[in-house]
Design a protein around this nucleic acid. Structure first.
Lengths: 203, 203, 203, 203
DNA sequence: CATGAATGAGCTTTCATTCAT
DNA sequence: AATGAATGAAAGCTCATTCAT
């Protein structure tokens, strides 16, 4: 049979890469970059380790492309778009984001990126372009949440103080929790979200 | 010089072991267990890696004994004894503990154990006796803080709800933060402690 | 379009194989057998690596068939036929052959085989049938040049001594040089040929 | 028992390194750098592959240090010192050097370096410092032989022409031959040396 | 026929652990 | 007791070879 045409090929190739990147994000998020073995990614993606190298040049490359893919407009931004169009109050929006961060939805990709960043912040000796990407990804959340925090402070719904710093603390707490056993968070999520939001709510 | 007598020998041996365990706790806390190499512990303790194996049977054994040593009554409990004799209110005690957890005091041993537990919670495939020890060490903090929380709830100083769960959330948040770049917490510590305590304070 | 008939098919198939064998000879000659990757041959032949395996069973097989093809009567012999009909003196013939060996003519196939043999002489662990072929190919040059050397000795144009051994030395020198950067030989070729011929010229 | 003192340690360490470098030079010379596996060096040196990495950081490092060690004053220069003090005529010196180059003496180290350089000249993609070392090592032979060639030309014992180029051809021929099966050269060495020297002798 | 996806053996390198001194 | 030499399992990556399309 004749080979597939170019579109079909690209389609298939993209799907395969995505399959591997999904697996990579999951495993990187669970184990941290250094402790993640290619074999673990391969197993998670149900392919041979050789195939992983057919699509990616190196472990660093997998990490880079996976984070890049995981933070692409149409995925991560979606969450914030939904949020901004929801008509909720700033604090409600932050609670919703917190809820989302812990939810096991199909939006776990965003969550994984979040957790990987947590791991990477502790890691030294990564290539520059990876560090840059991680910083950018972190910046993304800051930029998306910053206006919400600011508005909340204006309305007196959120406590006063340096917005950036307050946001930084909140995100650190979130990412720190995610690094723990996520299953712990399955129960009573609403109450936990409520408690976390108390850190910043003015009352 | 005449050879040391048996007591002196044991004394010396114990000192050496302690020297290595101190180093181990520090390095384990900074890097996580898996990423800590024996050579890193040896370097931190200023001994050869061979000597480490003279005193300990394996890496797991170092971890086990180090945590055990770090949680022994006369060390970790000290912190809580001081707290309980301070005459502070429950919430103030919790703030003081939080403060301590982030402080770079000479009581870093307790802190290290805390951070190692954080790393270990993410790790699979550890020997059973290590897991048990980690759980015990976690239990130690829970048991020490539990009465304080309970008292705070009785006084209406701390929000209502399942005490164990509330404490669990609080500890998870703390250990999660510690896994982040600790230098971030050097600045503005008091404000940050204040914010964290807002999670549980009744107001 | 109607399918090709059997002759046309065989014709096409033969052309494809030749295309690959030409590429293989070139790449093998430049890099040595072990360091030549299938992908390099495929790229040189402008086909996919999969197609290479459609026509050949293995890398060894490519090597075998390529050398065989490259030493077939109607190709390699041509050089010596031309030489023998040239009316030159034996020493002149040898100089001409030497010249040819270094020239970048379209007769590079013969040259490549020559260089591959050089590489292979150093290699252990090749299948027997390959070793035999290499020996045969070496023998081919010896048989073609032997009468010329012998005649030169009879005429006193070439120094006395065991003809086979003298020829062996000369060929070893030539193939040794070829393994070097061939570009070095681009300049001053005639002088270099002259110097090499001095080894055997009686003067 | 107490550990060895520093001198003894350095002594032992140096001997071990030398043992490995000897093995490395031999194997590199026989197989070329790319095709030499660490396991081959380890086997030749009769040590584990792990130990090789105890003394050297990488394969490139082994290559670098081995060539460096093999070209150190007290080894390679010795040959030329002996030659210059021998009172031989220039052409006789060159024959002696040629003889030496093929001899299986304990001076094979120099010979190995010679052969490795031959292999390396064909190789691309080596680190800069290795390339530099190889060039230097090549330069070493050129500088040692250059005055001898020049003198021979002055005396009319060696043919006229660009000295450097003539020397270059001669060295290329020698190294080319060495890359061949050296056992071939075991027999009739004197005659072969005689023939090679004819390339440059004025007669 | 033609492509490139897919696999796994094998190589370089790291590091826990053992052992000679 | 103390050092660091020595070993080998395991991980990242390459590439010959097979196979689905």
């Amino acid at each position: 049979m004749a080979p597939l045409n170019e579109n079909q090929l690209n389609q298939k190739k993209a799907e395969r890469k995505e399959q591997i990147m999904r697996a990579a994000l999951k495993v990187f998020a669970d184990n941290g970059v250094k402790l993640t073995k290619i074999s673990m990614i391969a197993k998670e993606a149900k392919v041979s380790h050789g195939l992983v190298y057919h699509y990616f040049d190196s472990k660093d490359e997998i990490l880079y492309e996976s984070i890049e893919w995981g933070t692409e407009e149409n995925r991560a931004t979606q969450v914030f778009n939904d949020l901004n169009e929801s008509g909720k109050s700033p604090l409600e929006k932050i609670k919703a984001f917190t809820q989302f961060a812990f939810s096991e939805s199909d939006r776990w990709v965003t969550q994984s990126v979040f957790r990987i960043m947590q791991h990477l912040n502790e890691t030294n000796g990564l290539p520059d372009h990876i560090n840059e990407l991680v910083n950018n990804a972190g910046q993304f959340y800051i930029e998306a949440l910053s206006p919400i925090f600011r508005e909340g402070q204006k309305f007196g719904e959120i406590i006063q103080g340096d917005t950036e710093e307050l946001l930084g603390i909140y995100l650190t707490v979130l990412s720190g929790i995610m690094a723990d056993d996520p299953s712990f968070w399955k129960e009573n999520t609403e109450w936990k979200v409520e408690i976390l939001s108390r850190m910043i709510s003015a009352r």
